[in-house]
Design a protein around this nucleic acid. Structure first.
Length: 271
DNA sequence: CCGCAGGCCCCAC
DNA sequence: GTGGGGCCTGCG
């Protein structure tokens, strides 16, 4: 077992806030089994500053969990707002992860009109059907398929993807180059490019930008965020358009809008 | 007067 | 959530 010292990091908030789906918690040992790409490792937080892990390199974990992100600069910006400050007080240590863009795109296409347990099921079934068996710590896991490998419509249907199946088949036609290319693009270019794919609209594109492309100004607006933004900043005026909310967020939080979004999101969800 | 871009609503998927 | 059809508006 290896150890890693951290500050301003909370494993539970980071894994369970809704940005990421491929983890299972073992309540007996307190370990989370985390999967990304073809990797699987286990990790737990023993106190505020210590992570114990096995199965991956320190570098991989630091990158995936966003541990090397300059958290204090972000906090300095977003806590100027009293509502975000309140959320930070309660959920300090929540980090944005750096997921694989392809895997993240599959996840968020599955997220349309769905819920977390269902998305987790979809991803597990896709891995089981198109990925490879991988044993770790005496348990069975399946690696995530690569672009091009989710290539059978009927099988995708069997993964309970429903009407999203045809979108996944279309997404699967993009190659690894496409996804690495996205990482080099500016926010609006990446978002526009993503939105050419069927099944990816404004919200899903922003999720992919924020959770896998290191684009901090992305601000995904779902019903929860819309509701709390209207309540906190627009006097509950239902006529306000999402575009207006977006511009407000960019003006207020700039490149940290995505972090502000995450904090407001958990605030909205806990009510 | 007509044709089309753009916004909005609605509902199947 | 997204896409696409229907419908209305504004402008050339």
């Amino acid at each position: 077992m290896k150890q890693l010292e951290v500050q301003n990091f909370n494993l539970k908030y980071t894994l369970e806030c809704g940005q990421f789906f491929r983890y299972r918690f073992d309540s007996y040992t307190g370990f989370y089994y985390v999967q990304s790409r073809d990797k699987v490792f286990k990790i737990r937080q023993t106190n505020d500053s210590i992570l114990e892990y096995k199965g991956a390199t320190e570098k991989f974990i630091i990158d995936l969990l966003g541990i090397d992100f300059d958290y204090n600069s972000m906090l300095k910006c977003v806590t100027k707002d009293k509502h975000v400050r309140r959320a930070v007080k309660e959920f300090n240590g929540l980090r944005l992860m750096r997921q694989d863009p392809w895997e993240c795109s599959v996840s968020y296409i599955c997220s349309a009109a769905s819920n977390i347990p269902k998305i987790q099921l979809n991803l597990e079934l896709l891995s089981k059907n198109f990925g490879n068996l991988k044993k770790f710590d005496g348990k069975e896991f399946f690696t995530f398929p690569k672009p091009g490998e989710i290539d059978c419509y009927d099988t995708v249907r069997d993964c309970k993807a429903g009407f999203r199946s045809k979108y996944l088949i279309e997404l699967n036609k993009k190659d690894a180059k496409f996804f690495s290319g996205l990482k080099k693009m500016k926010y609006l270019d990446a978002k526009k490019e993503l939105m050419t794919i069927p099944g990816i609209g404004s919200k899903v594109a922003d999720c992919i930008c924020l959770f896998s492309l290191d684009i901090g100004e992305a601000f995904p607006i779902d019903v929860w965020i819309r509701r709390i933004m209207l309540e906190l900043y627009f006097g509950n005026d239902e006529s306000v358009k999402d575009k207006e909310i977006l511009e407000f967020a960019w003006k207020k939080w700039g490149k940290y809008a995505g972090y502000a979004q995450e904090f407001l999101y958990i605030l909205a969800r806990e009510k």
